[in-house]
Design a protein around this nucleic acid. Structure first.
Length: 165
DNA sequence: GCCAACGTTGGC
DNA sequence: GCCAACGTTGGC
């Protein structure tokens, strides 16, 4: 199976792209996912897969960077920690319910690609992120979507392009 | 801060 | 197995 692409959401007040950049070895474990579909997507991840790092609950919400998968799915220890906010009393260590992967910083985008800007792209109209009511925090991105998104990075910010000199 | 959309829980 | 109630996500 070839390289695959993903998008992962994080609230920047909780863990931002800069936090990832400044983390030890620029790597973090993706703890706290408590949604089966998102977990299943993490199980599908392979080392070397590339990830769009998305800031949710931000102003504006935006894709801000790229990371790569450096460790495939393994049990998320926070599910067994009674003091952790991600504690899940229904999950037993002999059969862990929740898993996580490790991702490593690759780079920040040269500029954030905001949700409103992404919505303007007809090529991206089927993107999971842009569907009404979509809340998945871990989701697949097609190769076409990936390439189109990164091509937007090269173009000028729409709001400033009008004052070209 | 509001609230629509969604996922989960639990009574029946 | 249905579905009402509840909790959460996340854009606005």
């Amino acid at each position: 199976m070839g390289l695959r692409y993903w998008l992962m959401k994080s609230e920047p007040t909780t863990f931002s792209i800069d936090d990832l950049c400044n983390a030890p070895r620029q790597t973090t474990c993706w703890e706290g996912v408590r949604n089966y579909q998102a977990r299943n997507y993490m199980r599908d991840m392979a080392i070397g897969d590339l990830v769009l790092f998305y800031h949710s609950n931000a102003d504006p919400p935006a894709i801000v960077g790229i990371a790569e998968v450096v460790k495939t799915a393994y049990p998320d220890p926070t599910q067994f920690d009674k003091k952790n906010k991600y504690y899940d009393p229904a999950s037993h260590p002999s059969n862990p319910r929740w898993e996580m992967v490790d991702i490593k910083f690759v780079r920040k985008l040269s500029r954030p690609l905001s949700l409103p800007e992404l919505r303007k792209e007809r090529t991206l109209k089927n993107m999971l992120l842009l569907q009404k009511g979509s809340r998945l925090s871990v989701q697949p991105v097609s190769r076409e979507e990936w390439e189109h998104i990164l091509s937007l990075e090269q173009s000028a910010r729409p709001s400033t392009s009008k004052k070209r000199q």
